[in-house]
Design a protein around this nucleic acid. Structure first.
Lengths: 225, 225
DNA sequence: TTATTATTGATAGTAATACTATTACTTTTG
DNA sequence: CAAAAGTAATAGTATTACTATCAATAATAA
């Protein structure tokens, strides 16, 4: 996996940035540290001014890369889902049995990110934490429809679609493959959040993982075995 | 249902308001119109100043009822889930068969709110729209743990717990009743959002409802029939 | 090598937000 | 009728979310 991704650049929608942060050292530092700072402060408290101070750069310099913090969040989340898509594709590509494929897909998609793949300046462990607590904020806005039209959510939708296909291949007569796929992806983030903050309303924790829960759920839902 | 709820006051955690909005005309107007304005502007664009102008009152007067707009959102969402809890309890109370009870519960909890019950100044149709697009913002903050400790999310957790119990009674050997309950509640909001804004990644729409989807999902997951 | 251009940093400035404080006016209630 | 409570109006503060300008520096092209 490490090797495979070494030379890979996750491509994010061009309009999400003013200047490609991958094109300069400052750009990379902005992205790298925005992840750290958003995780620390939470998205609401995070500002470009604070990020500037954090990386020893200027607020106005950051604005040359990203229009505003909302676009930055869209950039980070797109990157994450693009990365997730690669993980999904690579780890299921070699498998021919639909059920095996589904099992592998569910593992990839529901597991916590435990270690940084080190193939870029982006720390995926920290990024995944941001995704859990901030992703919904990227689309729960009054501008969703316009931004969706622009294609800002394409990568995520493609990931859901891939999972839907895998589900479909296992049981073509199942009538809700898209909803199930979106439930798994969104539900995973939710269960991860619950096990950190609302333990009483989830069974996930030290012994049971979201992977266990969703594997069982999808299997039964699809009448497998 | 109308009759039953006529004399009912949904009780919301006291610390969520500075002064009980139910205690005065202005308070009720604040709550009533905040729902309308948040739905119109989205939570980010909504301010107490705008609300003041909207209701022909003063910004500072609103601050006498709610500390800030976050607390107001917590108030509104608590009210909603409290109301949902009553709907759930009342509509399942008479049922003795666990499966019937579950079916009824799923209907209550996953259906779109189509008409205002008119038992208060609160318009539940509009409120439910807010819940779909703003609820997560009430807990996806850095203050969750502190606010959870304060008890601000008790009503919601109690609702999840009730649903978990109903699930458990149908199939006591199912190992993830809490996660399933939270998935249904959160997933319902998500599917409703998707059918409005991201139709390609859901099967819910004009013909298929979230109720259909979740009924099937829960049934299969619990190995019913 | 010099001139040009791009990149970044520093500073200043604006409108809006999220409040707090004070004062005055108007109801309600005792 | 007086006191108390509730509300409105105004002003003021710190912060946010930017935009604009200009200087300093680094990269590159002639």
């Amino acid at each position: 996996m490490h090797r495979l991704l070494q030379n890979l650049k996750i491509s994010v929608h061009e309009k999400l940035y003013v200047k490609d942060p991958e094109s300069s050292d400052l750009g990379k530092r902005i992205v790298e540290n925005s992840i750290i700072l958003i995780e620390q402060l939470g998205f609401e408290e995070f500002t470009f001014k604070k990020l500037g101070i954090h990386i020893g750069s200027n607020e106005s310099s950051i604005y040359r890369y990203f229009e505003n913090k909302h676009k930055l969040l869209l950039y980070l989340t797109s990157w994450y889902w693009g990365w997730m898509e690669y993980r999904l594709v690579f780890s299921t590509a070699a498998l021919n049995d639909p059920q095996q494929k589904l099992q592998r897909a569910l593992e990839v998609v529901t597991q916590v990110i435990q270690e940084d793949s080190n193939f870029s300046h982006i720390n995926e462990v920290v990024l995944s934490k941001i995704i859990i607590s901030e992703y919904s904020k990227s689309y729960l806005t009054k501008e969703v429809d316009a931004e969706n039209k622009e294609g800002y959510f394409l990568i995520y939708k493609r990931l859901v679609t891939r999972l839907r296909e895998i589900i479909h291949d296992v049981n073509p007569s199942y009538p809700y493959p898209a909803s199930l796929a979106s439930t798994v992806l969104e539900g995973t983030l939710h269960q991860h959040f619950l096990k950190e903050h609302f333990t009483s309303i989830t069974d996930c924790g030290d012994t049971i993982s979201p992977t266990d829960y969703f594997t069982h759920l999808v299997h039964n839902t699809l009448n497998l075995k």
